[in-house]
Amino acid sequence: MPSIDPSLYLQTQNQSKSQESKSATLGKDDFLKILMTQLQNQDPTSPMKDKEFISQMTSFSTLEQMTNMSDAIQKLTEAQSEAPVVRYSNMIGKQVSYEISNENGTTGSETSKVAAVSKKGEKIELELANGDRISTNSITRVSNEASE
């Protein structure tokens, strides 16, 4: 005689629904539980056909791979946003124009090639080929070639 799964009782269902409201999406673990429950409760006189089972396992495998890729992309995005030096590293080798101030208080403009990017405290600095170190806030122009 088949037994009744305790998770089907009304009392347990109300608790399950409150937990479901926390996470409205089904994950790979939920899909696997559904598949296992389906296999346990199938009619022995009419078992699931091989094609149906293979199709469901393929769906599970696809779901698992998509979840893994999503997690990997999320980790990559977080790592890049946490490392501002990486964000500015594409400027290495480019020509930048930037504002400079003299002792007299007059401002001018210089142009040099970016040699390196570094972090000092919370600020990002560009180390230039002419020896200057400038803040990213003082950049007025970025180009691939030397300005003529």
Rank of each mutant, 00 (worst) to 15 (best):
A24I: 15
T25M: 09
L26E: 07
K28I: 14
L32M: 09
L32W: 02
K33H: 11
L35H: 07
M36K: 12
T37W: 11
Q38V: 07
Q38A: 12
Q40N: 13
Q40E: 12
N41G: 03
Q42L: 03
D43K: 06
P44Q: 01
S46D: 13
K49H: 06
K51A: 02
E52D: 14
E52M: 08
E52R: 03
F53I: 06
I54W: 00
I54N: 00
Q56M: 00
Q56I: 00
T58E: 06
S59I: 00
S59Y: 01
F60R: 02
F60I: 13
F60T: 05
S61C: 06
T62L: 11
E64D: 08
E64C: 04
Q65T: 04
M66E: 09
T67N: 11
N68H: 08
N68W: 07
M69A: 13
M69P: 01
S70C: 06
D71K: 10
A72I: 14
I73D: 07
Q74N: 12
L76S: 14
T77C: 05
T77P: 00
A79M: 03
A79E: 01
E82Y: 08
E82R: 09
E82T: 07
A83M: 13
A83E: 14
P84W: 05
V85P: 04
V85R: 10
S89V: 09
M91T: 04
M91Q: 07
K94N: 04
Q95A: 04
V96A: 02
S97M: 10
Y98W: 14
Y98P: 01
I100K: 13
S101Q: 15
S101R: 14
N102W: 12
E103A: 03
N104M: 14
N104S: 15
G105H: 12
T106E: 04
T106W: 03
S109G: 05
V117D: 06
K119N: 05
K120R: 12
G121N: 08
K123I: 13
K123Q: 15
K123L: 14
L126S: 02
L128N: 00
A129V: 15
N130A: 11
N130K: 13
R133V: 03
R133K: 09
T136W: 00
T136D: 00
S138C: 08
S138P: 02
I139A: 11
T140H: 02
R141C: 01
V142D: 06
S143P: 08
N144D: 13
E145S: 15
A146Q: 15
S147P: 15
S147H: 11
E148W: 10
E148M: 11
